[in-house]
Simulated assay, not measured.
Amino acid sequence: MIKNICAGIVLFNPNIERLNENINAIKGQVSKIFLYDNNSDNISQIENLVKKNNNLILIKGKRNNGIAYALNKIIEISYNNKFSWCLTLDQDSICSSNLISSFLKYIKKDRVAIICPFILNNDKYTVESMKKLNLPKCQIIVDPMKCITSASLTNINIIRSLGGFNEKLFIDCVDTDINCRIIGHDYKILQDNEAYLLQTMGKAKKIGILNALYSLTNLDFFRKVMNVPVYGDLRLYYMSRNSRYIRKTYHNPSKKVSFTYMLTQFLYFTVFFPINRSRVKIWRAVIKGFNDYKNIK
């Protein structure tokens, strides 16, 4: 079965050490790894890394066309190389050593479009705390926000039949958009809770008082908010724009793209982002994104 599985990693100015960890974690689990580079400044370092690994293929983009475009290129080259499944990965995420072997238990189930792992992001969960949750071994995902692109084992034929990833989104909500279409067409997204992914969302900043409150109360709310991911203003623009596009395009997609949820999230960023960030620029980006959603067609 592994002969039918490849991996694809989208690159943009990656930290080479972290990328190397990423590759080492997955290269023994798949037949081939395709790297699509979005015109990185450190392309020479990436090329040197590729030379040291036999099963890597590097595709160099002439400019940064966004993550959705890169994912479509990876799906296309995977299909042309006769692979049935592609594990899509972010450049800074590390897979568990049992990821693919665990996924194989579900790969032949009917109408499965994606198999994803449990996500350990920004130290909000540890492997130990994940195990204490007593989750089912596998569950069907019905909320499109609860499955991300990174470490998702993707059924190539199904994704192609749905038109691939929406390149006009560029970045953010790309996974939510495809998940909405998957669920809307009665395909399945499975979460395998015996496998996991170590993920970094933005440059995480630990909030001391919230961390202390979590230690004192052990309340799940404080665990979720004690590490704030720090995004640039351009990323906030896409978050605002694309979440509104999802709200307007799909029926009841997820509470996590609702106006109230997104407003609360941007207020949270406003309070807890580093003090040197301009709050005026943050909200200009958010408001511009909110107004620009209609330009996505």
Score class of each variant (00 low, 15 high):
P14R: 02
I16F: 05
R18L: 15
L19C: 04
N20R: 11
E21W: 13
A25E: 08
G28W: 03
Q29R: 08
V30L: 08
S31N: 11
L35F: 01
Y36F: 15
Y36D: 10
N42Y: 08
I43W: 11
I43N: 08
S44N: 13
Q45S: 14
N48D: 15
N48Q: 14
L49H: 08
N53R: 02
N53H: 07
N54A: 14
N54W: 05
N55C: 11
N55I: 07
G61T: 04
G61F: 02
N64S: 12
G66P: 06
I67M: 05
A70P: 03
K73S: 10
E76W: 04
S78V: 02
Y79V: 05
N80M: 09
N80W: 08
K82R: 10
S84G: 13
W85T: 00
L87W: 03
L87V: 10
T88S: 12
D90C: 03
Q91I: 06
Q91T: 09
Q91M: 14
D92F: 02
C95V: 15
N98Q: 08
N98G: 09
N98E: 12
L104T: 06
K105D: 10
K109G: 03
D110C: 05
R111L: 12
V112C: 00
V112F: 02
A113M: 07
A113E: 04
A113Q: 09
A113I: 13
I115N: 00
I115W: 03
C116D: 08
C116P: 07
C116H: 06
F118N: 03
Y125D: 10
Y125P: 04
S129M: 01
M130A: 14
K131F: 09
K131Q: 10
K132C: 09
K132N: 15
L133Q: 13
